[in-house]
């Protein structure tokens, strides 16, 4: 035998070495190897940084009119971005992204918007994952009529195009950010319920579950310690992609005037409030939309990366 290893030996040694590497280490390694998921993580890191430090980064309060600023500024409504380095006269008030229809600093509002956007994405998806997991686990574990009722209700929720159902729910509950979040949360429940139910069904009859039952494990132990951990990876992937959809839908509801209400610095509502000014003040439409797109893109790229990284079928490939 020469020093050169055959492909089979190489595969064997890799497979053996996996014993000492946890799933998360493999996932992380694979995630960082993929350019698109790195791009997603970088955008996300910047967004989280902005969201956490908005109050220090923002030059003004997001709801402060420049007329009330100290000292008051002599600047008009919806004035274009003015940056000294880019040729704007130095004695004019400097606003990187201009001012909005109420003479507020658009840049400050954009920074605070990051905070709101991430909060919207995380809160709706956490809500949907929680409710979806409970429903999916109940249906999958107990089966029978419980499963039937739960899954038929999920079918009904899925029968509506998601944005339209969210619109209908908010119309009934009344416009507002909390109601919009609730509506988007409700609309996204079926996706998680299905994922969890599928995982539960696939392992319910496995030997190790029966063994726990034979050893006297109660339902709680079987469900939460033996069965549900199997649903974790698909939930992480679905959840990351779900955050992207939730942010996009929330922005759409706010754009229609059903979500965040003025003066809340929410990107969708900022864009919606100024949409008729797109020809005279395009910056007020351009920046919020770009921010929404980048945020959604970041979660989509990360979600796709996670899906591939967590796929056990690719475990020995990378």
């Amino acid at each position: 035998m020469t020093a050169q290893t055959t492909p089979i030996q190489k595969l064997d040694s890799e497979a053996l070495s996996l014993d000492s590497v946890s799933l998360w280490q493999i996932t992380r390694r694979r995630l960082f190897r993929r350019k698109s998921s790195v791009v997603g993580m970088v955008i996300l890191a910047i967004l989280i940084f902005i969201a956490l430090t908005a109050q220090w980064l923002a030059p003004y309060s997001p709801t402060l009119s420049m007329l009330d600023a100290k000292p008051p500024e002599n600047i008009g409504k919806r004035s274009a971005p003015c940056i000294y380095l880019l040729g704007c006269s130095q004695d004019q008030p400097q606003h990187i992204m201009g001012t909005d229809g109420n003479i507020r600093d658009e840049f400050s509002r954009m920074l605070y918007g990051a905070r709101l956007s991430l909060m919207i994405g995380l809160s709706t998806v956490s809500f949907a994952i929680f409710v979806g997991t409970v429903l999916g686990a109940l249906g999958g574990y107990f089966g029978g009529w419980i499963d039937n009722v739960i899954m038929r209700v999920m079918d009904v929720l899925l029968a509506f195009p998601s944005l339209l159902l969210a619109i209908a729910i908010v119309t009934v509950l009344g416009p507002g950010l909390i109601n919009a979040l609730l509506a988007i949360g409700i609309v996204s429940i079926p996706a998680y319920a299905r994922v969890v139910r599928g995982s539960v069904l696939s392992v319910r009859e496995m030997d190790y579950v029966s063994a726990t039952r034979a050893l006297g494990g109660n339902t709680y132990e079987i469900l939460f310690k033996r069965i549900l951990p199997n649903a974790l990876t698909p939930l992480i992937v679905q959840g990351t992609l779900g955050i992207a959809t939730a942010i996009l839908d929330a922005a759409a509801l706010s754009f229609l005037g059903l979500g965040a209400q003025p003066p809340t610095p929410e990107w969708g509502s900022m864009l919606g409030a100024e949409r008729n000014q797109v020809f005279t003040a395009p910056h007020l439409v351009f920046y919020p939309g770009l921010a929404i797109m980048l945020t959604v893109l970041a979660f989509n790229l990360l979600g796709d990366g996670l899906r591939d990284a967590l796929d056990p079928r690719l475990a020995h490939v990378s």
Binding site: S36, A244, L248, A251, A252, F255, G268, L271, G272, R275, V278, F279, P282, V285, F286, P288, G289, L290, I292, M293, L294, V296, L297, N300, L301, D304
Partner: peptide
């Protein structure tokens, strides 16, 4: 990836701006 991440209303307004103005 960009296509699924783009808010439809934003793209619409930007298209209107570019193609009409």
């Amino acid at each position: 990836n960009i296509g699924v991440s783009m808010p439809v209303f934003w793209l619409g307004l930007m298209l209107a701006y570019v193609f009409a103005l």
